[in-house]
Amino acid sequence: MDIEIIQGIISLLLLILLAPLFSGVVNKLKAKMTGRIGAPVLQPYYELKRLFRKETINASNSSFISRFSPILNFVAVIIAAAMLPVGFWKPLISFNGDIILFAYILGLARFFQILAAMDIGSSFEGMGAAREVTFALFAEPIFFFTIGSIAFVSGAASLYEIYHSIHLDNISYMVFVVICSISIFMLAVTECSRMPVDDPNTHLELTMIHEVMILDNSGFDLFLYQYSGYIKLFIYTVLEISFFNPFGKESYLVYAGIFIVIAFALAFLLGMAETITSRYRMKNIPQYLLFATAIGILNLLIFTFTQ
């Protein structure tokens, strides 16, 4: 086998296996900041193990869609993860225009998750689905604007090449990339249902977005949903970490160090956001997302005209 394929498989496995750990770290840091001891870092693994051993219960009114959707969701997220470059290794799937496939394959997962939520026929799920679809609508432009602007500046059209084109030679380019990374962070917060947009720990169905959509899932289905949620969070984290690729050019060891440090920093930021901010009103979330898009537009405008 080709060395590149082996590297791709290894990085995909790393992404899949380490994803729950990252969520554990975020939760732990958040607990520390609010003065609690918090669950152990490996708690997400235990949760997954527990869910895997449970009986699967489906709602009485549900159809084949809610049985099929968790599987599709999981597969789609893994395919998206396979497109993600970890460090300087070529990802398993990489071709010209794969950023479009990346965004749309996550869209596939979302489509079926929304349908599965509506499948139950309960108003709770319906509400969650309506919110998810609204916010996803405004989140998609952020991704295209930030990643797309780097792509257009570098002339590349695959995630691997886009991240490879980031360099440290030019100060205005560095400002450009930093602001792009801010947009991506705001996107990650939205897509992974984190604090200013969605409260992962809320206990009232009416205030949930993502959690309420999987309210009636259990056992194996919930296991798949949870696991794909962890992987999704980690995917966006890696998208963010990859902006710091140029610092780790020397060796794998330096890169691994940087990877861990940045991951911790992001976990800290996410935990911090969840500690110090409160959730926005549902009405204001599209504005928050539009703001992130506006940053992307401004950034690209300014970068283009300073050349």
């Binding site: 205005s172 940053i295 401004l298 300014i302």
Partner: peptide
């Protein structure tokens, strides 16, 4: 100047939000 201008424009976005 460009960095400051970006910040300035960001403040404009904020004010319109």
């Amino acid at each position: 100047e460009n960095v400051l201008s970006i910040l300035f424009c960001l403040s404009l976005f904020y004010v319109s939000l």
